[in-house]
Design a binder for these strands. Sequence first.
DNA 1: CCAAAAGTGTTAGGCCTACACCCATGT
DNA 2: ACATGGGTGTAGGCCTAACACTTTTGG
Lengths: 248, 248
Amino acid sequence: MNVKELFEKGSELAYQSCIPHVSVDCVVFGFHESSLKVLLLKMKGVDKWGLPGGYVKKQEDLDQAAYRILKARTGASNIFLEEFKVFGKVGRSEADMAHLPESFWQRQRFVSVGYYALVNYAEITPVTDRISESCEWKDIDSLPELMMDHREILENALHTLRRNINYSPVGLNLLPREFTMPQLQRLYEIILGKPLHRGNFQRKIHSFNILNKHDANPSKKAHRPPILYSFDTVRYNEALQNGLKQEW
Amino acid sequence: MNVKELFEKGSELAYQSCIPHVSVDCVVFGFHESSLKVLLLKMKGVDKWGLPGGYVKKQEDLDQAAYRILKARTGASNIFLEEFKVFGKVGRSEADMAHLPESFWQRQRFVSVGYYALVNYAEITPVTDRISESCEWKDIDSLPELMMDHREILENALHTLRRNINYSPVGLNLLPREFTMPQLQRLYEIILGKPLHRGNFQRKIHSFNILNKHDANPSKKAHRPPILYSFDTVRYNEALQNGLKQEW
DNA sequence: CCAAAAGTGTTAGGCCTACACCCATGT
DNA sequence: ACATGGGTGTAGGCCTAACACTTTTGG
């Protein structure tokens, strides 16, 4: 099947099963090698990248739709997902679909609901679907050109992530189950965009009583191996209720 | 026209000019006599109250739709308005419309975008439209029964308002142009839900340098009349950029 | 004089920052 | 020895909460 036929097939299916004019876009954050990543798709026939997204089935909650879309793209369920903003300008979605016939589903005006997700980089396998050429992690500092208003959506998500850092389970969802203190600190430094004082950081984290200590890491490097920690999820979530109050 | 005919007329017009499945609901806050108020409508033929809301025209930005809906209900433009959450559960909107024929616009499944507005109570004239019996301010502490999930929407808006108090132009938009220091303090106390220390409050507000002092109020009471203030809008907005940092 | 409003001083505590110094561990 | 990691002590600065005291004004 060529690209147009793929879109046509998608168009037919969507008309049958989805609500028109409403779409969902997901900004999926991951953390790897000391930098923040976002999951992006490259569509066939378009020379730009886009956020994973989709439509809402007629008998499906909006949140469920976001979960379904994410699961299709990552294979993972139990993902942290939160709606953060709606994008509803006239003409925001049609521009990059102008090559398709007017009758196609994709040519509609869409009001898109933006979700941001926090996932464990290592546990995810980016899945390419039929209408996308590739599905990859991209570094937040070197993004390719994005279609439609996806750049704006992404930046809004990042802004929300920063603002919510004391209320979102950032550490729990972006790090592997077992992690080291330097990793955790780097994560916070990257999200906040500034260096943090090591000693004070450790003190603060420990003061929350949300960490379980594990055996040291059997490292291969010429130094002391870092201690492995995991989160005490119960106490972590309790602490988030009041916000991890502090200014960093 | 009876109630059903009114809905029928509205249904026809909406099918012609609006996007299906998408709606807007507005939580309009006002401040009067030391308490926080919300603008509510009582629909004809339904025994519950509802938030002012409406649909999005085919060639209209989502934000524009919210402004238009609010202007119709309040007569005012230049209203502070911000989207805060989307409500998209299956069945959230249909329940209270079950008395209408299935073909009616109102029986659709709607994904509703919630906006909250801050308005100057004195400058607003609540407007009743053809399908509502009345449009009134209701005290936040004694709300009537609300239709659909409007209670949930309202509580979400209130929560957002509290969280954003240091980033929203709360004082500027909820108070009359000239106001007194005790008024301002009461506003903050009500939004935050706790009493504030008078002396410290004044000191803080003054430290921001966002107030213009006016002549004293020609009061009729047996006391010293309070000083009238207005906001220096330029400096107020500058200060909001960084958030009115403090914990209250 | 009284009651409401306005303004200022002061103290104690809490938290954050920054710097410093300690120890542990694997090569 | 050295580089990395883990942990603690402490002083200064800033903000806040709480209390107190003073002054102004209209009736």
